[in-house]
Design a binder for these strands. Structure first.
Lengths: 339, 339
DNA sequence: AGTGCTCGTGGAATCGATTACATCGACCGG
DNA sequence: CCGGTCGATGTAATCGATTCCACGAGCACT
């Protein structure tokens, strides 16, 4: 592969001049410029990004460590992150943690080794020493979706409080009184928060969230299935299950089906995170939709701001309720959306 | 960030010795080794992968350019690719082409600039000069799922011939005679091939595939919807629609629903690519399942073989039919699977 | 004419690793 | 006791860019 030296030789100038042409530095003569450009063309020269990075100490690459690529929510997030990054002249390397802290650490480590300019993380846990360290020692960093409390890093996320309130209103209006939740891992902010918000919303209607109705999941489909089976085995099973993410909702659906029961008649179902497949399930699932694309874009903007020396602030965007048929037919005024 | 020089100073040895310790070269004294390791520890030193890559001319990174990350099939492929690569000591950078040749080119270019060790591609089109060039000039490369005919690059893919035959047998057994297909882009091998294989399988039953029953899609949901509407507008609409990928099947489902019709009673539906959501749609969708994970792993192995100087061969794995309810209740002997 | 700019250019240092080569003791066999 | 080998180590070249600095030419102003 041709290097800058070859180009310099071909054009009859020094490597310094070639570099100047390529980075369009002002003081290069028109003549030199055309000769260099011609040489670049004939040699099919492409600058070696590795060498450039070594010298300039910037890779124009962002790292994105997400909890689970197979989760459509994160896939969409990853896609919007890449799009926005590309439009700002950055590439992104995605690391899939699969909800495993060790894998998360592995990815953070290799990304750091590769000297990415900044890191976007949706933490799987409370934060390993490695990540805390990176944050402290000044690696530009932004949390997206989930975050680690007490760490001084901007957070880009959505606030589901209003939407969960709308959901509870919807459920209450439908006559449901025994509501259960499949929580996410307590180590994640979203895992904890969604339960709290739900409990709070129930409180407004004088309803409780007993321990028996609080199942512990891990954001994966299988855990949703297991927890739902537990609910169904209860002497007095809940009337509604609210899954804290889309995969656990899928698992819940499995569990209900496996018993020959039906949604919403035997058990109503709602989920946090709206994905396009929810329109096509049987029945279509009522969900809380996050502005996923906007979240990804905002996160990249915040990170790039940090990288380029600007402030880079936290952003919180509201989620909204999308009512479908999985909680029963709807006749209340809280309906907000469709499709 | 501490460099190898700092470590050398701290340990009281030369950088060469530090490097030797880190790459466990045999001739280093135990004493030097422990001192270096201690220094590494206290300084929290991590080797700069950028510098190392420049010197060794290898990045231990694979590039993966896929057609569409939002397609669950490719998401799963990407995941298995990353897993296998990681186990072999490589990282992977994913580029999402979104079925757009220009984006595909953009990613190939930046990956090449970053001097990735090898490239895994699922081409969106017939191949740009850039990609053809890369293949010719010796960049280790492997095609996965789709390929470009006439280019001397190993191909890892699945063969749907047998499964499509099983599908047609299943449909025929159910009494269907008017079968239509939503094809993928003619620029892709899978787009063309699936139509041919389908036509061939129909032929075995004395059935034709008229032009009117061959809709042109682009592997995206919207095109599936459009094509299906066209089919439904026909004076004599087909009894079955076979979508050449999962997203177009989703679009077809939309189209059928939008008219208040039902699957499979009014129109039966089958898809190439099985994804977990198909179990949960209404009705569950009959599909041809590729061994996606195995495909991804085999592709990585072939690529790494090439990179490390071993042959690196093409692999073809069989797909299989998974019968569900979207084509009508099944009483034929060809049923092969469940779940 | 002399001074001081600016402009275009090349030489060389630099980034942080790896590694060929040289050096120096120690040890071994004859 | 001496030449040779081997093991441990350091010095310096190298990878391919960017960029500081120096230099010379041309030009304007006094």
């Amino acid at each position: 592969m041709a290097s800058i030296k070859d180009v310099a030789a071909e054009a009859g100038v020094s490597v310094a001049t070639v570099s100047r042409v390529l980075n369009d530095h002002p003081s290069v003569s028109a003549d030199a410029r055309t000769r260099v450009l011609a040489a670049v063309e004939t040699l099919g020269y492409r600058p070696n990004a590795v060498a450039r990075s070594l010298r300039t100490d910037q890779t124009r690459t962002l790292g994105l460590v997400i909890s689970d690529v197979m989760n459509p929510y994160f896939t969409e997030l990853a896609r919007s992150v890449e799009e926005e990054a590309r439009s700002l002249g950055y590439s992104v390397i995605i690391g899939n943690a699969d909800e495993r802290p060790d894998l998360q650490d592995h990815h953070v480590r290799t990304l750091l080794d590769r000297r990415i300019d900044g890191l976007l993380v949706s933490p799987t846990d409370g934060g390993s020493p490695l990540m805390l360290d990176a944050a402290r020692t000044g690696t530009p960093m932004v949390f997206v979706d989930r975050w680690i409390p007490g760490v001084d890093v901007p957070v880009v996320r959505s606030d589901g409080r209003g939407a969960v309130r709308d959901l509870v209103a919807h459920l209450y209006g439908l006559g449901h009184r025994r509501l259960a939740i499949i929580a996410g891992p307590a180590a994640t902010t979203t895992g904890r928060e969604r339960v709290e918000v739900f409990r709070e919303a129930l409180g407004a209607y004088g309803l409780e969230l007993p321990d028996a109705y609080t199942g512990q999941g891990d954001f994966q489909a299988e855990s949703g299935r297991l927890v739902t089976e537990g609910f169904l085995d209860l002497a007095e099973p809940p009337e509604v299950v609210f899954a804290a993410d889309n995969l656990m909702a899928l698992g819940a659906l499995d569990a209900v089906r496996a018993r020959g029961l039906r949604v919403p008649d035997d058990l109503a179902l709602a989920a946090f995170d709206d994905i396009r497949w929810f329109v096509h399930t049987d029945p279509p699932i009522t969900a809380i939709a996050q502005p996923t694309g906007e979240l990804g874009r905002a996160a990249v903007r915040a990170l790039v701001d940090r990288i380029e020396g600007r402030p880079g602030e936290s952003v919180t965007l509201p989620a909204r309720l999308v009512v479908r048929r999985s909680c029963g037919e709807n006749h209340t005024p809280v309906q907000r959306s469709t499709t």
